[in-house]
């Protein structure tokens, strides 16, 4: 094994009341991977990311980040780990009372030792990265859903995390901005060797960015493999998932 293991999950189980959302999830993600997680709506993908961030406590199993066990980790340590992670939320989850630039400034001011000047230039840089440097004084409510998503991405990248969790980063974006996000993910991996976990429904984007893929179904990971292995997988559920996408494309011509 040449590459460091970034994330390792073993037998992760989570219930919401009576409903078992995650039955037993095992997966391991190496440093430098872009790990795409697919699955039907409601299969527990967002939940899985929540567990990784320590926002949800699994009922059983172990979650390790760079060899450090996260379940049951005391708060100061957990918060230290979280500063190395960035999360792009499915609903953006910006602080609605703060302007776009304040949202990005927030983690920098609270958690980094940067000077005011460095913070300003970082904010500028991150906003440029997602193409929103024009809108920095607007409130989140004055932005479209897709723009909010991109601000969320800029905020996630503010502290230069080692691992970025994307919850449907390109859902609700036009193809051009969707491609911008996908290019950004690839660029982060190539230039900054950032590891990413991407939850997405957009097959084209998924295959464009993924180095490894996983399919979550009924609380378990049905298949982990390279994009190639996914295309050739004989698994009926996965084939159906991929086919419904490609038949759409074909029927449109």
């Amino acid at each position: 094994m040449s590459k460091q293991t970034m994330v390792e999950m073993r037998g992760v189980k989570l219930r919401f009341g009576e409903k078992t959302v995650l039955e037993s999830v095992d997966c391991s993600i190496s440093a430098g991977d872009v790990f795409v997680i697919m699955g039907l709506s409601g299969s527990g993908k967002s939940t899985l990311l929540g567990i990784l961030l320590g926002l949800l406590k699994p009922d059983a199993g172990s979650v390790k980040f760079k060899g450090m066990e996260l379940t049951g980790l005391a708060r100061p340590k957990l918060n230290d780990v979280r500063t190395h992670l960035g999360m792009v939320y499915q609903n953006a989850a910006l602080i609605s009372s703060m302007s776009v630039s304040d949202n990005i400034r927030l983690p920098l001011r609270e958690l980094s030792d940067k000077s005011a000047k460095e913070i300003e230039s970082t904010v500028e840089l991150k906003l440029k990265l997602v193409g929103l440097d024009e809108d920095k004084d607007k409130l989140p409510s004055e932005l479209s859903g897709g723009m909010q998503k991109r601000v969320g991405l800029a905020r996630a990248l503010a502290l230069d995390p080692e691992l970025v969790l994307f919850d449907e980063p390109s859902a609700g974006l036009d193809p051009i901005n969707g491609k911008l996000i996908n290019d950004l993910i690839i660029d982060l991996r190539k230039r900054h060797s950032v590891t990413s976990i991407v939850v997405t429904h957009e097959m084209e984007g998924a295959f464009a960015v993924a180095t490894r893929m996983a399919f979550l179904h009924e609380g378990k990971i049905l298949l982990v493999g390279t994009p190639e292995e996914f295309r050739n997988s004989g698994n009926p559920v996965i084939s159906a998932f991929l086919q419904s996408y490609s038949t759409h494309e074909k029927s449109k011509g």
Binding site: L55, N79, P107
Partner: peptide
């Protein structure tokens, strides 16, 4: 938003 703040680790 509270989860987002918490997730940042602040």
């Amino acid at each position: 938003e509270v989860d987002a703040l918490e997730g940042m680790g602040l």
